[in-house]
Structure formats: C-alpha cells, structure tokens
Amino acid sequence: MTVDQFLTWAEDRPGRHEILNGEVFAISPQRAQHARAKSRIFVALHAAVRAGGLPCEVFPDGMTVRIDPTTAFEPDALVMCGSRMDADAVEVNDPLIVVEVISPSTKAIDTGVKFAGYFSLASVMHHLIVDPVKRLVIHHRRGAEVIESRIAADGVLRLDPLGLDVPVAEMFADA
C-alpha cells in the first residue's frame, strides 16, 4: 500500500494507524502516563513558540508525516512553520520538530526506524525522544554534516535553528 492509498483507507476508519514499507500497523491504546507526557510536551512547545513570536504551529498527535511513498508516521507532537495549514489537511509536509514519547512497546521503532525516517526529510531539524519514566529528553539536532545528540534531564533545550527555548521541567510538569 502507498501512503496515498493508506490516507484514503484510514480516513473513516476508527483507531490510529501508521504505515511502514507499505504495511499498515495499528497504534496501540496509550496509557495515561503516555497521554500526560504528550500533553505536557505540546503545551511546552506551544508556550516556546508563542514566547519566541514565531509563525509556527504546534500539533499534538494525529497529523501524518510522510517519510517516503510507502511509509508515514504519526509523531506524538510536531512543529511546522510558515503558512498556516489548510483546516482539512491531515499531512504535514515540512515539519521542523518531531517528538516521540517512548513506551516499552514503541521504544525500538521510535529510536530506530522513526529516527532514520524523520531525518531523511530535509525539513526536520530536531527530533525529540522523550522518556517519561526516566524524565529525560534525547535531543537529536541536524548539524551541518552530522546529527548531533544530547540527553537532557533538566535545564533548557535550545532548539536552533528556530531559536526556541523549552524548559525540560515543563515537559514533565506534574508528572
């Protein structure tokens, strides 16, 4: 199945799905800890975008990011900048920041296949992998010739390019 076929197939289908190499996978129901983490990350990113005065939109999970003709993922949060998306859009073509909250069942794909897939897109500057249990963020940033990585458990994540400052503590507030 192609991503175009998948998007048509998934349009009125209940539940959430992703497609990897033409094969459709259901996304498992999430635990409260996972949902809370996604919510806090969305709020923290939204606050950073507003504070920075940037023409960007922050989306929670639910938006599709096409990796190639047969692979598309649904990150737990993302940031895209530029023109406001059409209200009926289901796909973000040029995300700058993608976020995955790991859980025991998704850790391997979030840190492997999705990592490589997101950075295959020229627009992606930052990939954040959030571990709500260990309360840390693995920040992968596109450098001039390499992907730079760091682990943050406190302080402020500086997301350059973009110029966003996201306090790590806000990503785990009330956790």
Rank of each mutant, 00 (worst) to 15 (best):
D68R: 08
P69Q: 02
P69Y: 07
T70L: 04
T71E: 00
T71A: 01
T71I: 03
A72M: 03
F73Y: 14
F73S: 04
E74W: 00
E74R: 11
P75V: 11
P75W: 02
D76Q: 11
D76I: 11
D76M: 07
D76C: 10
A77R: 09
A77H: 13
V79D: 03
V79G: 03
M80V: 13
M80Q: 10
M80K: 09
C81T: 10
C81E: 12
C81Y: 09
G82L: 14
G82N: 11
S83T: 14
S83C: 11
D86M: 09
A87F: 07
A87H: 08
D88M: 12
A89C: 01
V90K: 05
V90A: 08
V90C: 04
E91R: 14
E91V: 15
E91I: 11
E91K: 01
V92I: 12
V92F: 01
V92E: 05
V92M: 07
N93C: 00
P95Y: 02
P95W: 03
L96V: 14
L96R: 12
I97G: 00
I97K: 05
V98R: 00
V99W: 00
V99M: 02
V101P: 01
I102T: 15
I102M: 09
I102L: 13
S103N: 13
S103D: 11
S103H: 13
S103A: 15
P104A: 15
S105H: 05
S105Q: 14
T106G: 08
K107V: 13
K107Q: 01
K107C: 05
A108E: 14
I109K: 14
I109W: 13
I109N: 06
D110G: 02
T111G: 04
T111W: 03
V113L: 15
V113Q: 15
V113C: 08
V113G: 06
K114P: 02
F115D: 01
A116S: 07
G117H: 09
G117A: 09
G117P: 11
F119E: 15
S120P: 04
A122N: 02
A122M: 03
A122Q: 01
S123L: 11
H126Y: 14
H127G: 05
H127T: 00
L128R: 04
L128D: 08
L128T: 07
L128N: 06
I129F: 05
I129W: 06
I129M: 09
V130N: 01
V130T: 03
D131W: 01
P132H: 11
P132K: 10
V133I: 15
K134W: 01
K134N: 06
L136K: 12
L136S: 10
L136N: 13
V137Y: 04
V137Q: 12
H139F: 04
H139I: 06
H139G: 08
R141F: 01
R141T: 14
R142H: 01
R142K: 12
G143Y: 03
G143P: 02
A144G: 14
E145C: 03
V146W: 04
V146P: 00
V146D: 13
I147W: 02
I147S: 07
E148H: 06
S149G: 06
S149Q: 14
R150A: 12
R150P: 00
